[in-house]
């Protein structure tokens, strides 16, 4: 299996998760032909690839072309992490006038080449699998590789953080401590990490497909969170996700 790892606008953390698999890395490298992974190797083989892992969002015209080429030369495209699947935190620019504000404060805006939006990979090409998370969970990442080797579908459960939290035996921070928590509306993958550290989930894995945002907002309000706080909680790594954008619009309409 020929594997490629591509980078777009991102922090490198998701592809670094591959190198953070210290116990499995040499076995993976033995089983997979890592044909293109510039962060790890000077050897950069041209396509075609069996599997392309794509990190980062599309923010430049050049990158919008590059992702088309990657799709043409890859049998399977898997997006890894919040930037690639949802546009990432840099999608905050989608809600501001980049050009006007860059010009206002930035010394020499003519040096900068950038699009006005940060968009997920799936807005540009068909994507075979999406791995959520800021960053991705390395167990899920390994499962994608193993699944590809064996020709099966990756086992990525579609449930909320609450389910994982219950299985981990954590005390519910909403019920026991009155701490606002995005767990009920957030896609699983982290293992219920934050409640295990006595803090509320802040949505690294983005809204789950089962998310019901209105009741979540009501719970947060009942715990004393004002609408600005709720708006900020929905405006981080998945600010451009449909469910978050819709709930923020509803909050804004409410306020007016």
């Amino acid at each position: 299996m020929r594997l490629a790892v591509h980078k777009f606008a991102s922090c490198d953390g998701c592809q670094l998760s591959i190198l953070d698999c210290e116990d499995e890395l040499l076995a993976v490298a033995g089983a997979v032909d890592i044909a293109y992974f510039p962060e790890a190797s000077r050897r950069m083989e041209p396509g075609p690839y069996d599997v392309s892992l794509v990190e980062g969002s599309i923010t430049t015209a050049h990158d919008a072309e590059r992702i088309q080429q990657i799709r043409r030369e890859s049998k399977v495209v898997v997006t890894i992490g919040a930037c690639a699947t949802a546009g990432g935190i840099q999608a905050l620019r989608n809600y501001a006038d980049v050009e006007q504000f860059t010009r206002a404060v930035y010394a020499k805006p003519e040096f900068i080449s950038t699009l006005e939006t940060s968009t997920p990979i799936a807005a540009h090409i068909p994507v075979d699998y999406e791995l959520r998370g800021c960053p991705v969970d390395k167990r899920q990442l390994l499962d994608v590789l193993v699944a590809s080797l064996h020709g099966r579908r990756p086992a990525i459960p579609n449930e909320s953080v609450c389910a994982e939290c219950k299985r981990a035996g954590h005390v519910c921070v909403i019920v026991a401590h009155g701490t606002p928590c995005l767990g009920p509306v957030t896609h699983s993958g982290c293992g219920g990490l934050c409640p295990g550290y006595h803090r509320g989930c802040f949505g690294c894995f983005g809204p789950s497909s089962l998310a019901r945002m209105e009741p979540m907002t009501e719970v947060w309000r009942s715990l004393g969170a004002d609408d600005k706080t709720i708006d900020r909680a929905l405006s981080t790594f998945h600010v451009a996700s449909e469910a978050n954008a819709a709930e923020r619009a509803r909050l804004e309409a409410d306020d007016e």
């Binding site: 923010t59 935190i89 840099q90 620019r93 950038t114 900020r232």
Partner: peptide, 21 residues
């Protein structure tokens, strides 16, 4: 590498969010 404008995003955010952002 494309710019991501973090210093811009941070304006108007709560200072308590800075470690996570």
């Amino acid at each position: 590498e494309p710019p991501r404008f973090f210093e811009g995003f941070l304006q108007g955010r709560s200072c308590l969010e800075t470690p996570d952002i």
